[in-house]
């Protein structure tokens, strides 16, 4: 089962380190100092919002039944061999029609700086240990890179310990 970027919302402190790391991973220089010194302006594909009392990161869910792929009239949005969804490196180019932006239920697709193509989480950001940049950067463990079942087992364990640990 492929790993997913899963979010423990209660842990996010809103530091935006994930955004910075995602942007750097999508820069030419691939380093913060290098990108800044080169004057690059890469864009992050993970977003941090204030939702009421909560600070909350969100990025593409790489849906199995992905509306963005169905809606992409140009045929740019596709599923890669590793099961992730991207509009780059496919048979066709993104034409900036913004259909994916309109149909994504999570708002996970944005525009590039020039407004000429859609930009989204592409997982082309993994380090030598295969960990995505946003997950690596998160200081609080709000972002986890795990298989879904392993993640939910962990959550069950936690909640059960809380409920029954003292019994």
């Amino acid at each position: 089962m492929p790993k997913q970027v899963l979010i423990r919302f209660e842990r996010c402190v809103g530091c935006r380190s994930c955004q910075l790391a995602c942007a750097v991973a999508h820069s030419e220089a691939k380093s913060l100092y290098g990108a800044v010194l080169n004057g690059e302006k890469p864009r992050a594909r993970v977003f941090v919002h204030q939702a009421g009392e909560h600070k909350a990161p969100l990025n593409c869910r790489h849906c199995q039944d992905a509306p963005c792929i169905d809606a992409c009239i140009a045929g740019a949005m596709h599923r890669k061999a590793d099961d992730t969804v991207t509009n780059i490196g496919g048979e066709q180019y993104c034409t900036a029609c913004w259909m994916c932006v309109m149909v994504c239920p999570y708002g996970a697709v944005r525009s590039d700086a020039a407004g000429t193509m859609a930009v989204k989480c592409d997982r082309e950001c993994k380090d030598d240990q295969g960990v995505p940049a946003c997950v690596r950067a998160c200081p609080t463990g709000a972002l986890v890179y795990a298989e879904v079942d392993a993640y939910s087992a962990g959550r069950r364990q936690g909640v059960l310990l809380q409920a029954l640990g003292g019994v």
Binding site: C15, R16, S17, Q19, L20, A21, A23, V24, L32, Y33, A35, V36, E40, K41, P42, R43, A44, A113, A137, P139
Partner: peptide, 26 residues
């Protein structure tokens, strides 16, 4: 923290903490 590494965070008043993006992205 990359913002701290670049020196672009400020806690000098209670409206903050503020940090500015080094990229055109925040």
């Amino acid at each position: 923290c990359g913002f701290g590494e670049l020196g672009v965070c400020c806690r000098n008043c209670m409206q903050g903490p503020c940090r500015v993006s080094p990229f055109d992205d925040g």
